[in-house]
Each structure stands twice: as C-alpha cells, then as structure tokens.
C-alpha cells in the first residue's frame, strides 16, 4: 500500500533538548489524522518540520512516494494553517486567499474564480473585501482554512486551528471541518492537545509522547486498550486508574481500569470517598489509593468520608508500563 505521507525516524533537537525522537508515522490518502499530545510535546515542531520551515536533524519525509526532506517549503506543496492563523495584516481577505494562487502564477480570472468558490464553501464571501484585522476569531479561522485549501495542495497540516475560538464557535467549526474534509477527500494532519477534538474528528489518532508516536489508532481503541499506562492516563476525560496489581493478586504488574469498568458491591477493593460528583451517567467517586488518585463511576451517591467497596468488571494488565493482557472485555 502506498501512503500519502510517510515520516521515517524524524529527529529534531533544540540545543541538547530532543523534541522529536525517531518519530515515525504513516498517513493514508484521504485520512483525517489527529496528532494528540500535551502542550510542549513537539506537535507544532512536527508540523513545522513536515512543511519545511524547521530543518530536521535526521530522518526522512516522503510525500506521495517522493522524498521531500531537502526541499524548501515553497516547493513541497503542503499547506499549513498556523495556530494563530498568520493572516497577512497588510492584505484584505481576498488578497490573503489569493496569495498562494498568485505564487504559482495563476491568471487573474482563475484566481478570482477559485477565491470566490472557496469563499462560498466556507461562508466568508461577504467578508472578502474586509480588512483581516476586523474579523472575528471564527472568520479568521475560515480565512486561514480557505487560504490553505484554495491551491489544492497534497496535504493539509493544521496546528490547533480551533484553540483560539470560544466554546460555541469551536463546536460548530469542528463539525464543519470534518464535513469539509470528507466532502473534499483531502488528507488532513491535525495536531491538538484537546481530546474532544481528536475524538470527534479523527479517523486515527497518533498519541505523541517523548518525541515519538506512542500509540496510533482510532480514538475508541486508544480509550479501550491503551498500550501503555501513559496513554491510559492521558486519554479519556478521567485518566485510566492505574493501581498496583497486588490488590487483585497479580504481583509485579499494574492494572488499569476506566472509572466505568467497576461494579459496586459488598466485597472487593475498599476505598474512602473523598469527593462525589454527580454526572449524567451516575456519580464519580474520587479517592486515593497508595498515594495515587483513583476515580470510579457508580450509580449511587456516597457521603464524603464514608467507605465503600467495588470490584473490577474489566481491567487491563500492564507490565513495565506496557499492556500485556486484557480481562473481561
């Protein structure tokens, strides 16, 4: 199978600090790939190296089977939407969108046609002659997207494009983005620290940790069977509970379970309720065990300070922080 984009063992250091560490990733044609990781993990750096504005210390970037590692950015034909949109403040909306077309020497007519078309698709036709500094956050995001889409590049890289929007606008923008990608069939690589975005947008999610991809797969897979304890505690609204295996007689291992993977009962593991939060799906009980915080979901409210017992309906077993077994799936 040929991939749209292949990243092979990318290396990037800032001084002595290694940001990308033998990072490999393959992206399929038409795929919506979300790269998920906490802030400062090198997500932006990854996109910058792919697009060519940040030189690599090692590794190879292959687009459509062609090695582009040594090409300058303007010859790679990869579009990128920067985190702060980087709209050219000295140009109006129309000129911003037209800029990439001008750079490839399109005629005025073609430029005009394409700009209007994309502006229509993204519902910014009314704002075309506005100054970009007067736009709202949502409009800016659309203009940046339009500018990326208009020249029909091979790949789209998006660096947290929704993080500067307020909650409501962000929700709508997310839906539209997904729809747009599916309709146009473009290949998207989208980096974010926001799991909700990963969950609702991605075909596959690549979790970035310590400079390389720790696990890759559909979001649900990552949630259900995190391959490392780190992914387990990073993915999910509540981190996966990781406790010592001796509790259920598995010495030398750790077990991981989601808050909802428990049954309340009269025997099993005992804990003291430190916090009880009501939610749609029940009550979240928070406590600590051996100095680690754990969270479970039960159906009944419990008083703070009371004790309760629960048993595990389902759990994953980790040795040396790596998944070795799944139970009760």
């Amino acid at each position: 199978m040929t991939y749209k984009l292949q990243l092979q063992e990318l290396e990037k250091k800032f001084g002595s600090k290694s940001v990308l560490n033998r990072l490999s990733l393959d992206v399929e044609e038409g795929e919506f790939m979300v790269v998920l990781g906490p802030s400062g993990m090198g997500k932006s750096t990854l996109l910058r190296t792919v697009v060519g504005i940040e030189p690599l210390d090692g590794g190879k970037i292959v687009v459509d089977g062609e090695d582009v590692t040594r090409l300058p950015p303007h010859k790679r034909n990869i579009a990128m939407v920067f985190q702060n949109y980087a709209l050219y403040p000295n140009m109006n909306v129309y000129k911003n969108i037209a800029f990439p077309l001008k750079m490839i020497g399109e005629s005025r007519d073609v430029i005009d046609k394409k700009v209007n078309e994309i502006a229509g698709t993204l519902k910014i036709a009314d704002a075309l002659h506005q100054n970009v500094t007067t736009l709202s956050g949502g409009q800016k995001q659309r203009v940046a997207l339009a500018r990326a889409l208009v020249r029909n590049p091979k790949l789209f890289l998006l660096d947290e494009p929704l993080s500067n929007l307020d909650a409501r606008v962000r929700y709508d923008a997310r839906q539209e983005l997904r729809k747009l990608q599916q309709e146009l069939g473009h290949t998207f690589i989208y980096v974010t620290h926001d799991q909700t975005e990963a969950q609702s947008l991605a075909d596959r999610v690549a979790v970035l940790h310590n400079g390389s991809v720790e696990q890759i797969g559909p979001y649900d897979d990552l949630y259900e069977r995190p391959e490392t304890t780190w992914v387990g505690s990073f993915i999910g609204e509540y981190p996966m509970n990781i406790i010592d295996g001796s509790v259920i007689g598995r010495e030398g291992s750790q077990i991981g379970f989601r808050p909802s993977w428990v049954n309340e009962g009269n025997d099993g593991i005992q804990l003291t309720v430190q916090l009880c939060q009501a939610a749609e799906s029940g009550f979240f009980i928070m406590s600590t065990m051996d100095g680690k915080s754990i969270t479970i979901r039960v159906q009944k409210r419990h008083k703070i300070g009371s004790t309760m017992k629960f048993s595990l309906r389902r759990y994953n077993v980790y040795t040396d922080n790596r998944l070795v077994e799944e139970f009760g799936k």
Binding site: V51, G52, I53, P73, H74, A79, Y88, M103, R147
Partner: peptide, 24 residues
C-alpha cells in the same frame, strides 16, 4: 509565523521579503 506562512504558501525568499516582510 507570517514569514513561515508565506513560505508555505509558495513564496520564495525574495517574494516573501517584498510582499510580506517589508510591507509589515
């Protein structure tokens, strides 16, 4: 990022200079 954006949008360095950096 303005300069980076221009590079990504297909402008070479002289064009980036002339169209983006100097006017800005």
């Amino acid at each position: 990022d303005l300069e980076n954006q221009a590079r990504v949008d297909g402008a070479n360095l002289p064009t980036t200079m002339y169209r983006i950096l100097i006017p800005m």
